[in-house]
């Protein structure tokens, strides 16, 4: 999308929000249509459950409907919607039994005293094309993302999957830009390591994640 297009979309969205705040219900329908897929996708990626994602999407759409007048336009409207979506998803997750997270540090690269890589690094980046669209590969990737600790996962989903800018992610999560960058880098390192176990294994025998 071009920069001008983005700017125009943002303007159109601001107008919709103002119209809805003034009581125009058609504007609300348009906002709901624009955002329901984003809300559903983010909550589904966090919870990996259709029913829960549906509940959260309903709840968020209802909050948008009832609380639109509490949105003051200090941050982007999208940031506000993502923040509400995250809160609703976390409430839902908290009510369920949680599996213990694995420590991210175990999966970060290791170096010797001189700062050189200690493990053997295989370049599997060329092996992925034929595997990308198989169901097995998709499941492996989802499983790896599910294993990310919450703090890193949410930054990864907002920035790399939903495509928000670093600044907007900081805005949604109330984090500084260096903090966003550092969490995202850790998430990518973690995922790289997890996927290496699968893609880097010899072709005759696929590795387990």
């Amino acid at each position: 999308m071009s920069f001008t297009q983005q700017k125009e979309d943002k303007k159109a969205e601001e107008l919709l929000v103002r119209d809805f705040q003034a009581g125009n219900l058609e504007a609300y329908d348009k906002i709901a249509k624009l955002y329901q897929k984003k809300i559903y996708a983010l909550s589904f990626n966090l919870m990996r459950n259709q029913m829960d994602a549906q509940d959260v999407t309903q709840e968020v759409l209802l909050i948008l409907f009832r609380k639109i007048n509490t949105f003051q336009g200090k941050s982007a409207f999208s940031s506000w919607v993502y923040r509400i979506t995250l809160n609703a998803s976390y409430m839902k997750l908290r009510s369920k039994k949680k599996e213990p997270n694995i420590s991210i540090d175990e999966l970060l690269p290791s170096f010797n005293g001189a700062g050189f890589q200690q493990e053997k690094i295989q370049d599997w980046s060329e092996n992925t094309e034929s595997l990308l669209f198989t169901n097995e590969t998709r499941e492996i990737i989802k499983k790896a993302v599910d294993l990310l600790p919450e703090k890193e996962k949410v930054v990864f989903l907002l920035r790399d999957v939903e495509g928000l800018s670093t600044e907007n992610v900081g805005d949604v999560l109330n984090l500084t830009i260096p903090a966003v960058k550092s969490r995202l880098h850790r998430a990518r390192l973690f995922l790289r390591k997890k996927l290496s176990g699968y893609f880097g294994a010899s072709n005759s025998k696929k590795g387990e994640i």
Binding site: K37, I141, F156
Partner: peptide
């Protein structure tokens, strides 16, 4: 080894993004 790391770091981001942003509302 760092080139291998660089390539796989890059492709990891693309793979995860392309897998997860395909989610549609049933």
């Amino acid at each position: 080894p760092c080139v291998a790391f660089l390539n796989t770091y890059k492709v990891t981001t693309v793979l995860c993004r392309d897998t997860l942003n395909q989610i549609e509302i049933p």
